[in-house]
Structure formats: C-alpha cells, structure tokens
Amino acid sequence: MPSADELLSADSVADLARCLTRAGDGITAHETRGCGAVLDGLSFTERVALIRDAVLADLPADYPAFANVLRAALRDSDFTGWMIFPVTEAVAVRGLDAFEPALALLAELTPRLTAETAVRPFLRADLERALRFMTPWTAHPDPHVR
C-alpha cells in the first residue's frame, strides 16, 4: 500500500499548483505551492487538510468563480490523480451553500479520482436533497461517477 508521501508528495502539490495557475485568471496558487515544503511527517489526512485549506485560500471565495477555475483545470490532462483528493474536499467546504452545483462539480471531478469522502458533508447536511440529486448517478455512463 502506498504511503502518504507517495500519494500526496511535494511533487504532486507542485503539479496541482501549476494546474491551478494555468486554469485561473490571475491565480498564483501561492498557498498551494507552499504546502509542498511542509508535508514531511504529516499523515495522509493531515496532508489532505493542509492542501485543501491552501486551495481554498488560493481560489476565489465566490463559489461560481471557484468552480470556474476547477472546471478550467479539468481541461488540463495533468489535473488528475491524488492531487484531486484535497480539491474535492475543498469543493465540499466551499460548496455546501451551492448544494446542487457543488455536487455536479464533484461528479465532474470524480473520473479523475474519487470524491467519495467529499459527498459526505452533503449527505449529512440534507440527506434527502443529496440523494435526489445523486440517485441519477447510478445510471451515469461513467463507472467512476456510478
């Protein structure tokens, strides 16, 4: 089983920062880039939280603008793998007030890496609403979304 430093390494954080910078108009990803230097000794969960918070700091606070940056990043084939995990967690934090649009974004991100833990805050916040939105995913053509 891969270790935390193999899944979310300084290199993967640098790659994430590059993807966000390329995707966002004026995004520097300064906070995200800086995370790579402080990962040593952190567990996977601690790494995810650190990177998630850096992504939240680097991207717009306004949910539609935040989502636009991530959708632009999805056009970049380098935006994939374990770097996506803290990004989906950032969507869960920033998107609870934009419930359905945030769930839709998680479905878009899922083919790059799972968003299985990122959907949980939506399920806790409003189970019926989340299930109404997510139930059609069971017939989605992409098995990662299903």
Rank of each mutant, 00 (worst) to 15 (best):
Thr32Gln: 06
Val87Gln: 00
Arg94Ile: 02
Asp78Glu: 09
Asp62Phe: 06
Met83Cys: 13
Ser77Cys: 00
Gly81Pro: 10
Pro64His: 13
Arg75His: 09
Leu70Asp: 05
Ala57Trp: 02
Leu70His: 04
Phe66Glu: 04
Leu105Lys: 11
Arg94Ala: 15
Arg71Asn: 10
Asp25Thr: 03
Leu7Gln: 15
Asp53Asn: 14
Arg120Glu: 10
Ala14Arg: 15
Ile51Val: 13
Leu59His: 03
Leu113Phe: 11
Glu46Asp: 13
Phe133Ile: 02
Arg94Asp: 14
Phe99Gly: 05
Leu59Asp: 00
Met134Asn: 02
Ile27Gln: 00
Gly81Gln: 11
Leu106His: 11
Thr28Gly: 13
Ala104Thr: 13
Ile84Asn: 01
Ala115Ile: 05
Phe79Ser: 01
Asp15Asn: 15
Val13Arg: 01
Phe99Ile: 06
Thr114Val: 12
Ala54Arg: 13
Ala90Ser: 07
Asp25Tyr: 00
Ala17Asp: 07
Cys35Met: 03
Arg33Met: 12
Leu131Ala: 13
Arg124Val: 07
Glu6Tyr: 12
Trp82Asp: 08
Gly34Lys: 04
Ile51Asp: 15
Ala92Lys: 02
Ser9Lys: 14
Ser12Ala: 14
Thr45Asn: 05
Phe85Ser: 04
Leu74Trp: 07
Pro101Lys: 01
Val38Gln: 08
Asp97Trp: 07
Glu6Gln: 08
Thr28Ala: 12
Ala115Glu: 12
Leu103His: 08
Leu96Met: 14
Ala104Ile: 01
Asp126Arg: 06
Ala29Lys: 10
